[in-house]
Each structure stands twice: as structure tokens, then as C-alpha cells.
Computed example of a mutant assay.
Amino acid sequence: MLIALAAGVFAVASIALAVVDVRTHRLPDAVVLPALLVVAALLTAEALRTGEPGRALGVVGGSAAAFVVALALHLSRPGAFGGGDVKLAAFVGAPLGWYGPEAVASGLLFAVVLGGVAATGVLLAGGRRTQLAYGPWLLSGAWLRLVGGPGEGMPSG
């Protein structure tokens, strides 16, 4: 039950954040941070409830690892990868971490590929000065891994 609730919170926040980022190029802390805390808490509680403390560590570790990778990108290219994207990476790392390091890595890789394809399309269309919101691609990469990636996907209950 808790994992389904976590998936629901992740889904609602994902949609809201993608829409806001496309429209404003901002990822509001007022949505990202509470959603991260709720999803991480629900997944951690589910892991402890089911006697799988390794999954709880995966949730925290996945969130931290995604945050660190995103922070490194932000520090190397602050104009291309914003601070909101760093916090969003921590958010997507939590449910990916439920499935382990491979899920975190592949979810982030899917995001890079999707964002790269989108950026290539913008460039080919002549939009050299167009700014592309990265949040939707980060969320899409996570969802691609969660529902369709190799191995386990997001459980239904």
C-alpha cells in the first residue's frame, strides 16, 4: 500500500514539475522538496515494513547519488544544468534507488539521452538560442526506467 502511495505522489509531482519547468524554466522548492521527503519516507517505511532494509538504504543512497552526479554537472556547467535540476535529481533518485544502483544509473542515462535527442531536434529546427527545460527529460528518464526499463518496474501494490 505504501509503495502505491509513493508512486502516486511521484506521478502527481512529476506532472506538476514538468509543466512548471516547461513554462517557467523553474523547479519550485515548494514542490520538489516536500515530494522528495514524502516519497523517500513512504518507500523507506515500506522497506522496513517488509523487512528489506537494503531497499531503504537504496532509496536514500539513490537520492544522494543522483544529487551528487547532478551537483557535479551543475558546478561544471551552471548555465546548462540549474540548481533546481540538482534537487530534482535527488527526487528521481529515491524511487530509482528502490531498485538499486543500476536503476539509478540507467534512469539518469535515459534522461541524458532523451534530453540530448530533444536538444538535437531544437538545433536542427534552427533554435540555437532556445533554452530547453531539462526537468521533463530527467523525469521522463526516471519514468522510462521505472515502468519500462530492464528488470523490475514500479510495482502496482
Rank of each mutant, 00 (worst) to 15 (best):
G153C: 11
L33W: 12
A4T: 11
R55F: 12
G149C: 02
A118L: 13
V20I: 15
P101V: 13
L138Q: 03
V59L: 08
G126N: 09
V112G: 05
G61E: 05
A41S: 15
S76F: 15
G51T: 09
V122G: 10
L37T: 14
G121F: 14
L96G: 06
G100T: 12
G61C: 08
G153F: 13
V59I: 05
T44L: 07
V104M: 04
L75R: 15
R55S: 09
A142H: 01
V19H: 12
L124H: 10
A142Y: 00
M1R: 06
A103I: 00
A30R: 12
K87V: 06
G135P: 04
A111C: 05
E152T: 07
V104W: 00
R49M: 10
A125C: 08
R26A: 07
L33G: 06
A70F: 02
L139N: 01
A16V: 14
G61T: 04
F91M: 03
L123V: 12
F10S: 01
G115N: 04
A142R: 00
Y134F: 15
G148Q: 05
L2H: 06
A118I: 08
V9R: 13
A64Q: 03
A47Y: 11
P53V: 07
P28T: 08
A7Q: 07
A105W: 04
P28E: 06
A16R: 09
L5T: 14
G149P: 01
A64P: 05
A142K: 02
Y99D: 05
V59P: 01
R23D: 11
G116A: 11
D85T: 11
L114V: 11
D29M: 02
A6R: 08
M154L: 15
V92D: 00
E152H: 08
A72K: 03
H74T: 05
V19W: 08
A105Q: 02
L33R: 12
G61A: 12
V92T: 06
P155D: 11
I3K: 07
L138K: 02
A35D: 10
L17E: 02
G127P: 12
G141M: 03
L114G: 03
G153K: 13
G153H: 13
P34R: 06
P78E: 12
A45K: 07
A30V: 13
L139A: 01
A40V: 04
G127V: 12
A80D: 13
A89W: 00
R145D: 03
G121L: 11
A119I: 10
T120P: 11
A70K: 00
